[in-house]
């Protein structure tokens, strides 16, 4: 009985946190995909200097925890003194998450382009198309289809990643849960359990949708 009362009391706060989680993840998947798409394509078609630089960008972000990215963007950048690098928590969180997301998207772009059979671009080239034309008209449209299912996996990675931005004070779901436990310190299990359940309710359908898309469109592997 007591549990139900407590849940009734904290649920509005948790749902507000979930709403924030939803907003951040939605903005991030948009920004991160665009950025990752550009990075991925440039890395494939750009010259040696561009692809090496972008390769380093991906490795640097892949080689360090997201928590470190977040701290560098939120705490280190402002010490440069440059005014537009003095970020509020919300834009800092979205930027950090988008950079992180872009590395996954870039890898998927590459895997998808490589998964399109060579014969496709060779046939295009043999009709007299340039390299860029064969990319744009023949290879990319086929690669795009392969990219749809793994994007579901990336979206879930983002949702889970938003939990970490609680540390710079953003009132998303984990933060809401922490607040609730401060008010009801005896009910840690109940509140964190409920928080986990809300994440599950958000992520699980996305994963199922991705699975369904995979059977429909085929897929490339999501890098770990």
């Amino acid at each position: 009985m007591n549990e139900i009362k407590i849940l009734e009391a904290v649920m509005p706060f948790l749902l507000e946190g979930l709403w924030m989680t939803f907003k951040i993840s939605l903005i991030t998947i948009l920004c991160g995909s665009v950025l990752g798409f550009v990075v991925g394509i440039l890395r494939m078609v750009g010259g040696w200097a561009i692809s090496t630089t972008l390769g380093l960008y991906i490795h640097a972000l892949r080689g360090t925890p997201f928590l470190v990215h977040l701290y560098i963007i939120y705490f280190v950048l402002p010490t440069t003194g440059i005014s537009w690098l003095q970020l509020e928590a919300f834009p800092a969180a979205v930027i950090a998450l988008s950079l992180y997301t872009s590395t996954y998207v870039a890898e998927i772009v590459r895997a998808a382009i490589e998964a399109v059979p060579r014969g496709q671009s060779e046939a295009a080239r043999s009709t007299g198309m340039t390299y860029l034309q064969s990319m744009w008209y023949i290879v990319l449209p086929q690669a795009l289809k392969l990219m749809i299912p793994p994007m579901g996996g990336i979206y879930v990675i983002i949702i889970k990643g938003t939990s970490i931005v609680s540390v710079i004070g953003i009132a998303e779901l984990v933060r809401a849960g922490e607040h609730a436990t401060q008010r009801h310190p005896k009910e840690l299990m109940l509140i964190y359990g409920m928080t986990a359940l809300l994440y599950f309710a958000y992520c699980y359908p996305v994963l199922r949708l991705a699975r369904w898309a995979e059977t429909k469109f085929g897929s490339v592997r999501l890098p770990s």
Binding site: Y192, Y199, C203
Partner: peptide, 12 residues
Amino acid sequence: IRSTPLLIQIYV
């Protein structure tokens, strides 16, 4: 495990 963040798993 796949549908919940590691942070909340640690807390739980």
